[in-house]
Simulated scan of single mutants.
Amino acid sequence: SLASLSYLDLNLHRLQALSLHADVLPQYKQEAPKTPPHIILHYSAFKTIWDWIILILTGYTAVMVPFNVAFKFKTMDDVSFIVTDSIVDVIFFIDIVLNFHTTFVGPNGEVISDPSIIRVNYLKGWFVIDLLSCLPYDVFNAFQPESTDGGISSLFSALKVVRLLRIGRVARKVDQYLEYGAALLILMIFGFVLLAHWMACVWYTIGLRDLDLEIWYGWIPRLANDSLEPKNWTKNTYQSLLPDKSMAYLTSLYFTLSLLTSVGFGNIAPYTEGEKAVVVVFMLL
């Protein structure tokens, strides 16, 4: 009937608006093509909801991976972070499996539902990046014995940054929303805050590096002097004298936001050569 056709049309438009795929349906064919039972249509309601879940988890990854690497959450005392990241890794692995069974739009605008073509297309495309981004680096790092070489531990911490490749998923799916002013504003705000967060993690990492080099006049010792009043800074005792991680992160974020929005207020400033070099890069950005 006419009413049922209008209802289906309305649902189709809603689905197209929510979908994270630029090419939702072929222009010349609105009815669903016949597909094998194990193949998922890329514009179906299930795939649309799943893509939004992946998008949210990608945002979580973009925030938490640099934070965990910079602040070195890698021991069993930080089990909540490890469990959460492991769950996220499992979901991203399931997404890889689903991508092997999801249709895509071909070069001529047709919906490709042949399983062999879908597999080849995904293997030639984003499969390697998606696989590298969901490996359980936290689990590898957490279960290392205490006698393990520190270089291996540092390697696993650095490899966790590979997870940021998941941001490529966002870049290839949200570009269709850039034509809407409100969506563009939200994306710009999120991008600005994310940049400040990444810079804060780098700022803290540089401060720790200077301490490892026994440079005791950087921004972290000065922060500790203001809050904890340590007496003897040495290579063996500075770990116990460091400000707690929440205080260090808030101070780092405060500094990078003040640097991005103005020229800084001077209460947190670069002192060592490494800190000044990083701030020069930040200011150029």
Rank of each mutant, 00 (worst) to 15 (best):
I94L: 14
I91G: 02
V24P: 04
G150D: 15
I82C: 00
E179G: 04
G264I: 01
V193K: 04
K235R: 12
H101P: 05
I129Q: 03
S262D: 11
D244R: 12
L260W: 00
M283T: 14
L257Y: 00
T75P: 10
L223S: 03
P243L: 06
V139A: 06
A182T: 07
Y217F: 12
D244M: 09
Y180K: 07
L10M: 06
I220D: 01
E229C: 10
D89V: 04
N232F: 12
F93G: 03
D114A: 05
L194H: 08
G266V: 13
V63L: 08
W52V: 01
T75H: 14
L12H: 00
V111L: 08
N267M: 10
L284P: 05
T261C: 12
I129V: 13
Y43A: 03
G264S: 02
K124P: 00
L159M: 15
P230N: 06
R166N: 14
I56D: 01
Y249Q: 03
Y238H: 13
Y254S: 08
P136K: 11
N11H: 09
M283A: 12
D51V: 05
L250E: 04
L164H: 04
R169P: 01
F282W: 14
S157V: 14
I39V: 05
W50Q: 04
Q16E: 07
L187W: 01
H13L: 12
K160F: 07
T102S: 05
I118H: 01
D138Y: 13
S262W: 15
E179H: 11
V63R: 02
V193D: 04
W219G: 01
S133Y: 03
I96T: 05
R209S: 06
F192H: 09
T84P: 01
L159K: 13
D89R: 09
N225H: 06
T75M: 13
H42G: 09
I152D: 06
F265C: 08
H101G: 07
V65G: 00
N68Q: 09
Q30D: 03
P221G: 08
T61E: 10
E31W: 10
